[in-house]
């Protein structure tokens, strides 16, 4: 009898724990760290993200995902670095004000570019940076097998996601990112190629290829104007389908399909 009571108590406790766990569903938290007061460029970057509610938007965007644990997304000053790697231990994604400041700088330096192009590059690249850094967290939290360099994987997932929200959003984000890669391209030689990150020109083509492969009608001009050489554009449908398959197999099981439809129907 005593044993039965004990067993019942254990069951009760276990259920209680279970319920507690269930009620405290994992959450995405966002935060804007302070920019160093003396650094006008970083303060400006901070202000832009805050005013545009970049992290709030990103958070809404992630709503369909069923996270297994809490995820923290921070915008922060990174001590001069453009990027701070995703922290697997604390499940923290960081967007560096330095990166945002760099995007603004690069766009500003393009004096012969139209305002529209510059704005597209800024907006597209900020979205790209947010998605790219978040991709690392998704790979970790959902235990996604990564074949091919992880930084390229983050790019491909980013470009693929950019394609799921209508052709206008796709144009802004993908072509904007590509403009930035073009404008910021530097000459790579020798040991530069040891980097885990891809050269800007390579990223340029990777993004455009996912766009053309995913929607050869909306992005037809990429082929006709020669932005994508024929020998690459011929492969793009395959590249897009490959990412789509990886997404469907490894991320879709963690996405609420109904919420995803709502997200796709929303104006961003």
């Amino acid at each position: 009898m005593r044993r039965a009571t004990l067993a019942a108590a254990i069951v009760g406790v276990t259920q209680g724990l279970f319920l507690a766990a269930a009620t405290a569903a994992p959450q995405v938290s966002i935060a804007y760290g302070d920019a160093p007061a003396g650094d006008a460029a970083l303060v400006h970057a901070h202000d832009i993200l805050v005013k545009s509610q970049a992290l709030e938007e990103l958070n809404s965007f992630l709503t369909p995902l069923k996270f297994p644990t809490d995820l923290h997304i921070r915008a922060d000053a990174c001590g001069g670095a453009l990027r701070r790697p995703y922290d697997r231990a604390t499940k923290t994604v960081t967007i560096c004000y330095e990166m945002i400041a760099r995007v603004l700088d690069v766009a500003k330096a393009q004096t012969s570019a139209s305002d529209q192009d510059r704005n597209q590059a800024i907006l597209g690249t900020i979205v790209e940076a947010l998605f790219h850094e978040t991709a690392y967290a998704l790979f970790d939290l959902f235990d996604v097998p990564i074949w091919g360099r992880i930084d390229d994987a983050a790019d491909r997932l980013t470009a693929f996601v950019m394609m799921q929200f209508g052709e206008d959003n796709a144009r802004t984000t993908i072509l904007g990112s590509a403009l930035f890669f073009d404008w910021s391209a530097r000459t790579w030689t020798g040991k530069d190629f040891a980097s885990a990150e891809a050269p800007e020109a390579q990223r340029f083509y990777n993004f455009l290829c996912i766009a053309y492969g995913g929607d050869p009608i909306a992005f037809d001009s990429l082929k006709t104007n020669g932005a994508l050489p024929d020998y690459r554009s011929a492969q793009c449908a395959k590249e897009y389908q490959q990412v789509r398959k990886a997404f469907d197999l490894r991320l879709m099981p963690f996405i609420d399909a109904d919420l995803l439809i709502k997200a796709r129907a929303r104006t961003w």
């Binding site: 990564i146 074949w147 360099r149 390229d152 990412v243 990886a246």
Partner: peptide, 9 residues
């Protein structure tokens, strides 16, 4: 599933 570039994979 190949999330990165197939040639690197």
């Amino acid at each position: 599933p190949i999330m990165g570039r197939e040639e690197d994979a």
